[in-house]
Each structure stands twice: as C-alpha cells, then as structure tokens.
Design a protein around this nucleic acid. Structure first.
Lengths: 220, 220, 220, 220
DNA sequence: GATGAATGAGCATTCATTCAT
DNA sequence: AATGAATGAATGCTCATTCAT
C-alpha cells in the first residue's frame, strides 16, 4: 500500500486519467484497436484498414475522428506522456515530499509501487510511446521539455534535499537520478517486457531494488 | 585502456567483426545506407528506394544482394547481435574470468569499458536492433536463445563464483545480473541516446557506476 | 440607361429571376456557397462538405434540399441558362424588334448594355455554366436546343430583316451572328474575366464595338 | 497555303513541337490516354486509374514517369502553351513582319491559316488548357506572363506600325488586338467546338473574317 | 427540417519486388 | 553484376450519400 498521505496526488493522477469522456462508442473502439495494433506491430507497420477492421468500423470512420493516422498516434501517446510525468509535476510535489518523506527510501518505495501500477495499467501505451519517440521529432521535443526539464529539475531538488540531510552521497544530482532511475526502470522493463510470464514477488523485488539503491548511494 | 590480459577475446571479437569480406563495393554502400536510414526512420518506415538512392545504386541492385527487405534488416541485425554477445560466449569465458578477475569490480570495469567502445562503434546498428526486436518474432527468438540462455547462464556462473567468494551479497543470481545490467545499460543509454551532446568524463562516470554497484551488492 | 421602350422584356426577365421564392434561408445559403465554390474550383473539385461548411449548415442538409451534388449544380446552371436566353425567347421578340429598332446599331447597343448588366450580376454563375457545359451532355443538349435552335433562329430573322433593309451585308445569317457575337462576347470576356481589375469606360468601349461591327457589316 | 516567306518560323514552330523524343513507349501511351481523358471529363474528374487502363499500363507506371497527377497535366499543358505563343515570340517576329507584310490583311490571313492548322492538330490539348487555366493559379501566372506580356506587346507594335501607315484606325492598340482576336478566336471556337460536324469552307470563312475586320478597322 | 456520425467505394500515391536488357 | 522500367497490391485519406435521432 501507498502511505495514506500520498493519496492526494494519486487521486489527482486518476482524475487526469479518464480522458475525453465525450467520446462516442465507435471512437473508443477505434482507440482501443489502435493501441492494440500499434503496440503489436509498431505505428509505421500498422495500417488504418486493419485498425478499422479490428475496431469494427468503416475505414472512413477513423478519419472522421482523427484527421490523420499521426493524429491517432498522438491521441494515444500524448495523454500517456502526461500521465507519465503527472506524479512529479503536480504543483505540490516538492514541498509535500520534503515534509512527508523523511527518508529517501520511503520516497523510492512509494515511487516504485506507483510506477508498477502505472505500467501494469498502461503497458501497451507505454510500449508505443517508447517505440515511437525516436522517430517523431515532435514527440521528442515534448518529451524533452516535459520530462527532461520539468521532471528532472523537480527530482533534483528532492535529491539535493536528501543530500543535505546527509542521507545520500554527494554525487551530482543528475548522476543520482540516473542511477536510481536505471535500477527502477530496469526492474520495470524486466518485469513487464523481458520476463512478464514469470511469477514475480513484486514486494520482495521492490525491496531488493530499494536496498540496492540505498546501499549504493549511502554516505560512506 | 583495457587491461592487456583482456586482449585475447577482444581479438576474437574483432575477427568476427569484419563480416563478409567478399562483399562488393555496391553491397557495402547498400548496407551502410540501410543502416543509416533504418536507424533514422525505423525499418517499416524506410523505403528500399530511398536506401538505393542514398547508396547510389539502382533499386533492383538491392534485391540482387538481399532477397527481401527483411533480409537486408537481418544482415544488419544478426551480426550485431552476435557481436553483442560475443564477449560472453567465447568458449573460454568462465575459466578465464575466474582466473583473471579476482574481484567483481575488475570484471565490471572491463565490461563497461568494452561496452562503451562497442556502443560507440556500432550505435546505429544497436539502435536498429533495439527498435526492431519487439516486432520480429524471429529476432526475439534468436535473442532469447542466444542472450537470455547462453549469456545469462554464463554470467550467472560468474556471479555465483563471486558470491561464494563472499564478495557480493547472496541474492538470486538473476537479480544480481539485473541490477548490474540496469546500471550499466542505463549509463550507456544516457551517454549515447539521451544526452549524447554533453561532454562526458567516461572514466569518472564508469567508476561511479562501479562504486554504486559494488556498494549496492556488498555483503552487509 | 437602356431605352425605355426596352423595359417590357427586361421586366419579364426580372420576373423570371427571383427563382424559387419558397426557399428556406438555409437553402439560400447553400446555393450561394455552392456558386462561390463551384466558380472558384470547378464542380468536380468542389466538395459538398466544403460547401456545407461555407454555408454554415450540416453536411446532410445539402442532400435534404438537393438529391445529389449534380442536382445542386443544375439548380444553379439551368436558371442561369434560362436567363441567358430569356431576352431572345420572349414570345414578342421578333415583332417588337422589327417595329422598335429601325437600325441594327440600336439593336446592338441595347443588346450590349443588357448583357453587360447581366454579366455583372451573374458572373460566377456564368463562369460555372461555361466551365461545366463541356462535361455534361445533358447540359449540352439543353444548351443546343435552347440556345442554338431557339435563339439562333430568332436572331437570324432579325438579321435577315436588316439585310433586306439593306443595312447590312448579305452574308449568311449564321455568319453575321457569329461575327457580331464574337465581338460582343470577346468584349465581355475581356471586361470581366481577362482584365477585370482595369478601369473600363464601358460606354466608350461598347460604342467602339458597335462602330467596328457596323463598319464590318456595312454594305459595300 | 501559307506564303513561302513565312515558312521559316513555321519550321521553327515544328521544331519545337517534337517534345521529349526520349520518351518510352509506355510514357507516350500514358500521355495520349491522359490527353484524351482530360479533354473528355476534365482534369479533376479524370482518375489516374482510368488513364492507366486506357493507356494499357499499370497504375504505378504513371507515377514512375509523372510524380503527380498535376505533373501529368502540366506535361500536357505547358508545351501546348509554349506552342500557342511560339509564332509570336520567335525573336525575329516584329522585324520580319514589318518587312514582309505590307498590309494588315496579309498578316491576318497568315495568322488565321496558321491558327486553324494549330487548332486542328492540337484540339484536345487546347481544350484542356482552356478548361484548366481558371483553376490553376500557376498556369494563370505562366499564361499572363507569356501571353499577356510577351505576345501582346509584340503584337501591339505591329498594330502601331500599321496605324502609322494609315491602314487601320487609330484606336488604342489593345482595343484593336481585342477586336481582331475576338473575330478570329470566335471563328476557331465555332469551327472546332460549337459546330465541328458541319462542312466548313475554311478559305471562304477566313476571307469573310478578314474582310469584316479590315472594314471594321478601316480608317474612315 | 436539420443534424452529423457513419459508410464504403474510390482516389492519388507508394512500395517491395520482378525481369528483360 | 547491375540496371531501371514495370508491376499491382496496399496505403492513407476523401467523398457523396444515408439515416437514426
């Protein structure tokens, strides 16, 4: 479980998540079909006619709702990008953190659990996002601006805070972020992409990650 | 520099690397053009006519050397996959290791340096491999067999060896591999894909990674 | 100004012109939008959705009033064709003429002025008519029947009348009509299509046309 | 027959006319099919698949030779526009004229005969040119530049020359051109488009046109 | 009457692949 | 070995038209 005190921003995250409630039923079906097919064969190799078929609509119907195929991609990928950064960008992120988590370890625990849940719920969309970012400069731009700048600067503040507290080693904040993120993302990728079929004791593995990071970053 | 003692398998790696010495000049140009364009726009979005144009050959010439477009992809991606696993698969890998590296830390250092060099030399092909694996079951199969099975079992043996020596914590070998790989791959991705334009003190960053891993895995 | 004596058939023309007084406001807007867009891009290249948009109605509304796109075209083009021939077809045309215009020159003057006004008022519809006639056999048929037969035979009678009077040269009536029409239509096209932006002294140019025709047709 | 002295620029015109001798046989067939179909149904209403079918080639073949459908149109329409103005633009036009034709009437006779032949040979392409100019700003631009500017200024010089000789009435040159052109073009349109099926005594009609123009423009 | 979502045939264009030269 | 013209299936997208609301 996440600490109760954390619930407020999860709540906010969830609020963000029920996208476009005014979508017609056909539109929803198109979106779902597109997610499935884009995730399976990639954007470029997916054909709109296949999407239409899987969605059970006429091909023209896709283009009534999404001006172009690219538009359809963006309507999948932009919201997921927003949700990806949401937890870090909510305006009360830093103060809340500093007050709430007296230990880096608690911060990590909350983060991992939250991202595990996020990945479980949105796996296909995340796959699409990761696959397509390299080929779409506009997505890259958005990603760099929102993630690199917004998220990184906020997290770095948190890192510095814990460094000042003497909890973690005084490496450059960017390095600390990279090391931490590598371990967590490496876990998520292994869990959901590389070996998804295996039975995972997620609690146990999460704790192992945390301990590894904490010892790795401990002040000597 | 890599320690001299390591040179023998690097030598072997290099032997593997001058692939198909019997390639005509046009074929080489086709291959180079394909690598560039596949890396830039992805396999599915790349057109053979664009490749032909960039290679300065006629469209038909591509299909004289590579039966299909997929064939052209494989001729890029299979060799790079072979080279990716080469250092671990050379038949003398484990014994050599156990004798040579008395410390996990030295093993890591050698590994990181070697992979840095590998990534620097073959970045576009590695990009292509990573991008296309999810969409080609045959590549996945090959990857699982060669990397997951061959490489992992060998590395796990090394891990167990160092665990028995008491140098690293007695976690499941798979977990140790994952943690170690996450940090190293996370470094490589950040170095070459996320922030390639930045000036990197690779020696320094590599040592930071090593220290992080060593502390993270240290017996308590 | 047109000579008063001419007013009666102008009056009749005007009666014809307030077409379909029972049109709803939306229908009027559709018609206007269609005229504008057909004239601008041609019938085939105009899309009903663009017309709907410009008219400010829903796509379906067009088809409530006009069964097909072709229907919409006809509802523009047929009335303008009727008005085009109206002055010549009014049943009292010939007798009136013979009585009224004692000189061919007066007939021409009245004709030019009237057609100038007609072109000024209905330019876009005339453009559409001219553009589409070659591609619609039904329009051609209508045009040949109404214009070639009806109008030509009546005008020829007038010509013969003036030839018998010795005012104009005894060429075949068809030739006289062609020469006269060429000059007048050539003027109208230059005035409204080729060089519409120029300041035109229409009175002066009309008189020049008349003098040219009269000298050209004068009995030697 | 055209006066021998005129043969040199006709010769030049014909030289211009054997367009692109390096066309493959399929390309020729595509071009001919396109001319036929564009003339019959108009550019916008013609489909490339219909053209391909009539040409007896695969649809893709069209696009190997002409990047776009518009390209195909231009490859028909630009050469015909060039040929349309060729007789007037040949660099020796004015001097030759002034020396050769001592009477406006002879100039007209030569012009009419030449344009009759031109229309007879290239009727479908001329139809296409006339139909499409209103809808393609780039064609309009080209037309205005080449025809309006180049041709008109040259012809005006000729007109002024004959006016100074006292052969024709001192109206504005533009007006003289318009009157003359109206009569000739009116004849051509009637001959080839309105009543092509009729037996025409072209010599006789041409002389009638010339006499009409000469009397119309005679100094009083 | 008016709407606008839905349709599916049709469009221009691209593409991997073939083959005669 | 190399070419490049030719292919025809497939693609993303548009369009006139229908119909339930």
């Amino acid at each position: 479980m996440l600490p109760e005190s954390n619930e407020d921003w999860i709540e906010q995250l969830l609020k963000l998540s029920d996208e476009e409630p005014k979508m017609t039923e056909k539109q929803t079906k198109i979106l779902h079909a597109a997610i499935e097919i884009f995730a399976e064969k990639g954007y470029a190799a997916a054909s709109t006619s296949e999407i239409a078929q899987k969605a059970g609509v006429a091909e023209g119907t896709i283009f009534r709702h999404y001006k172009t195929k690219k538009d359809l991609l963006l309507s999948i990928v932009l919201p997921i990008m927003a949700k990806l950064v949401a937890p870090f960008v909510l305006r009360n992120f830093t103060p809340v953190l500093e007050a709430k988590y007296t230990r880096y370890e608690d911060f990590l625990r909350s983060l991992i659990r939250n991202r595990l849940e996020f990945a479980r719920q949105h796996l296909p969309m995340i796959k699409i996002l990761m696959q397509e970012i390299p080929f779409h400069p506009d997505l890259q731009e958005q990603f760099k601006t929102e993630v690199m700048n917004e998220v990184l600067t906020r997290i770095k503040k948190v890192i510095v805070f814990f460094q000042q507290e003497g909890q973690i080693i005084p490496l450059p904040a960017a390095t600390v972020v990279r090391l931490t993120a590598s371990v967590i993302i490496g876990f998520l990728i292994t869990r959901f992409l590389l070996v998804p079929e295996q039975e995972w004791d997620e609690e146990e593995e999460a704790e192992t990650c945390i301990r590894f990071i904490m010892h790795g970053l401990a002040t000597r």
